[in-house]
Nucleic acid binder design. Structure first.
Lengths: 189, 189, 189, 189
DNA sequence: AATGAATGAGGATTCATTCAT
DNA sequence: GATGAATGAATCCTCATTCAT
């Protein structure tokens, strides 16, 4: 029972944060959407903050899994780079509510150490993934490139929150690839 | 008296948002920091939301002024581009509390139309500034470049909130210039 | 539990309005008298206004029930008229706190549509009860008589608020009967 | 200056009470309508309650003056009775805002001794006026008649607050005269 | 496992009133 | 005489959290 309930709550948390657009969601809202009482939500997660953190972990795990899956199917640094980008802006990750939750987690990370840690892990993992592709292609410039690309990806997420209409992952990938193409002339197609 | 009080409140709002790291600041906190009673704060601004919006306007105005000033002193598209970037990451704008406030305003923009509008104005202005520099340098690619550069700037702001220690504007400018150098070979030094 | 709590709150509302003499009672006062926290009061009634309306309904329901009961035991239009009057000024309705609440509900009815509606229902019901007795006794004059009698009853309630000492329902009934006796010579005893 | 200001405030008080429908008017509202600052209102009247009392006195004085004027022009108990009624429901007294204020003053009288005293004076004066007319016409029944008529008048005022549209003084006078006609067969026309 | 019941703590907002000018 | 400036006190309402069942 427990994993089912927790999972429902995590998803409800993300949904509600996405719906409200901020962390000002009540435990009642979340619990109601997850089909249970607020008391039960507290039973499974000790506090609202724990729910937020679990939701964060969920989002970052999904993202990580998607990247890993995409990498497994890609051959060569060039293809692997594109795989990372496509995974980053795949419909599963780059959807309105997830983007909104993600933005709010950034806010959370300013105050809650565990949230900060989670986001740091994500950044490190992304950077390491990028680096392993970029090193063979850009050599000493790989570090700077990875930093720029990481920031660009986050910026593209950020800018999505202002847009209306459904997220356009393809355009985002395009912008990121454009960056790469310029930096790695002759490589990334 | 009114402009003095309002100004103090606006600054206190930014400071408090930066200190707390979220919009969950109480009017009392803001008012106390501004050296007045919460009642007076409500007297000058109708509501907490109005204070937030005024603070947003303040930050965006400062930014706009700094960019305008930097542009005025720059000759040629290349120098103007660098001026925009330097202004964007100048110590006045790229300071912890302002970055934190700015992030939270992004959250606000999801729900509050006026906040959304303000952020949209900022984006449009930035894009138009970038375009006027990029067109002579990149021709048809200017639009794509401006979008990428805009997202990159926002991403660099975003990533600043996770860093510890004082913001490093120079490094940020460097990363952005790196992007430009690759895209405009032979121009931006 | 809910009906018990709500009932306690409704009674406490009436008591407090009677005690304070106006609608300027705080939810805390009401809740305390009802033996619970203000938060719980808000839980059961969405707002203070809802509490007021429930209290109004309660008073008018009590009144209606008492009239109905009295009518059931009365035979003939003449006896029924006296039954209505006796019920109107019975100790249950014509008690200080209820009269005070009733006066304040009249104030409320000026602004709150639902309160206005409730009072209108009461007036209509009273008039219809009076009419069914008066028609056989006064024929075409029944309407005018019912209007006068209704206003007289309300006026007697109103004047009660200024009096000191316990309400004198008997005297009120007497005054009303006096009115009737004059209008219906040879009927009402 | 003082009498002018005070007069303006008194009138503004009545207007605002009529507009809002309750005593929950702010001193600011009253002062603004009277064309001055809230501080000045406090300068002339020590407190909000004093303003209310002055407004009450104003309304009761107007009423008293109108009755006195009408009585001066009437000959004989019968005509004097009709004069009192006509004055009671004259357009000057029986207007929406005055009726609303009057109802609220009744509420005030429950708590504020001076308000209670003012209303008692009004009742005594009305009763004495009625008595001097009724004694020659009804002898020993005069007291009961005066009480009934007084309550009826107040009840007609009360019922006016629920009505929509402009007050109908003529109908009210009619209802009261109807009462008298029945009680004094052969006298009041 | 599940929840209804309950509350303490807190926060935005309002307003009568004061006072220096 | 007149007011802008200022605030303490109050009030409604919300919500995370607890607990008995």
């Amino acid at each position: 029972m427990e994993p089912i309930r927790k999972d429902a709550l995590v998803k409800a948390t993300i949904t509600e944060i996405g719906r409200v657009g901020s962390l000002d969601v009540t435990v009642s809202q979340i619990a109601r959407r997850a089909g249970m009482s607020p008391a039960l939500a507290h039973h499974y997660f000790g506090s609202k903050e724990d729910m937020f953190l679990a939701a964060m972990r969920h989002i970052l795990t999904l993202y990580g899994a998607e990247v890993r899956g995409a990498l497994a199917a890609a051959e060569g640094p060039d293809a692997r780079l594109r795989a990372i980008l496509r995974a980053s802006f795949s419909p599963g990750n780059f959807r309105r509510e997830a983007v909104s939750a993600w933005l709010n987690f950034w806010v959370l990370a300013q105050t809650v150490p565990e949230a900060r840690r989670l986001l740091a892990v994500y950044q490190r993992r992304l950077r390491s993934n990028l680096m392993s592709c970029l090193r063979p292609l850009a050599g000493a410039r790989a570090g700077a490139l990875a930093d720029g690309l990481g920031a660009l990806i986050d910026g593209l997420y950020l800018r999505e929150v202002l847009k209306s209409g459904p997220p356009d992952g393809v355009a985002a990938v395009h912008t990121a690839l454009n960056y790469l193409n310029a930096q790695l002339p002759g490589n990334a197609a």
